[in-house]
Nucleic acid binder design. Structure first.
Ligand code: MN
Ligand code: MN
Ligand code: ZN
Ligand code: ZN
Lengths: 139, 139
DNA sequence: CTCTTAATTTAGAATTATTCTAATATTAGA
DNA sequence: TCTAATATTAGAATAATTCTAAATTAAGAG
């Protein structure tokens, strides 16, 4: 049984992850990474800015975008847009998965790949690199 | 064997379709609808504006957007965005289908539903209203 | 420590897709 | 032919994101 990490331990863990990815762990980057990786769920840049405004002395919107770009480039985050929205969504779930968008609440839920079977039939022998699936409905 | 419709017949066909949908068939609307419904393939608003600039005496960008909105509202078109782009794509294929995005060319191809089996092993009994699938890769 | 340089952050301007506004033009139909 | 409703238009406004160039901070050599 592993103990729940203290706030300090969590911060150090994040810091190590940034280091390992070759990212200088500045205060802003640690804060954003911590929020995105441990608290947020499919946040947008605006979600992160809002959080930062309440939990960090001062952070510019440019830094939010800069940091997110770095995290995406180094493979710590993924980004995508939903078919009906124009905001980028950041996803910490790097493993292959799909999404369910609750029409009512706007909440976005992960669907593990084993819950949705996707089989190309008349196998056209395409080289498929990404499979984006968004189910929209209500629970 | 049905004859290929003349340009005039095609235009009248479009006009009738607008009428039936309760849309006043103005010159601009007929032109846009004709292009989108018979020539274009998954166009963006910008594609349509570019076409109009070359094939219609004068059309404002606002009219392009206004008309597209009307066509979507009346169910003649569908709209969506791809996960990596920020432009709306208009689709005349109203039947349930999926998309394949060719990474190399940027071309978007329809995938008929029978070519892709999507089975929710859904113990969760969700009410799914829309299924968006975009495969990204190369042919 | 203390410079010096490189990296990061920042405010605000720029960009892009889209929507809005309010004036003008066109249409329908009495 | 008039009138009212509808459609079109140019350009301003908006929203998400990126860019710019200056200020701040961090790293590392001495
Ligand atoms: Mn959100
Ligand atoms: Mn296009
Ligand atoms: Zn996810
Ligand atoms: Zn399509």
């Amino acid at each position: 049984m592993t103990k729940k990490p203290t706030a300090l331990e969590a911060r150090q863990e994040i810091e190590k992850r940034l280091q390992e990815a070759g990212i200088q762990p500045t205060a802003q980057r640690i804060a954003i990474a911590q929020y995105v990786l441990t608290d947020a769920d499919h946040p947008t840049a605006d979600d992160i800015k809002t959080w930062a405004d309440q939990n960090f002395p001062k952070m510019s919107l440019a830094t939010v975008y800069n940091t997110l770009k770095i995290l995406v480039q180094s493979g710590i985050l993924r980004e995508f847009k939903l078919p009906h929205s124009d905001r980028v969504i950041y996803d910490t779930n790097l493993s292959h998965h799909f999404h369910f968008l609750d029409e009512k609440t706007g909440a976005l839920h992960d669907i593990p790949p084993e819950e949705l079977e996707i089989k190309p039939r008349n196998s056209k022998n395409w080289d498929i690199r990404q499979v984006h699936v968004v189910l929209v409905g209500r629970k």
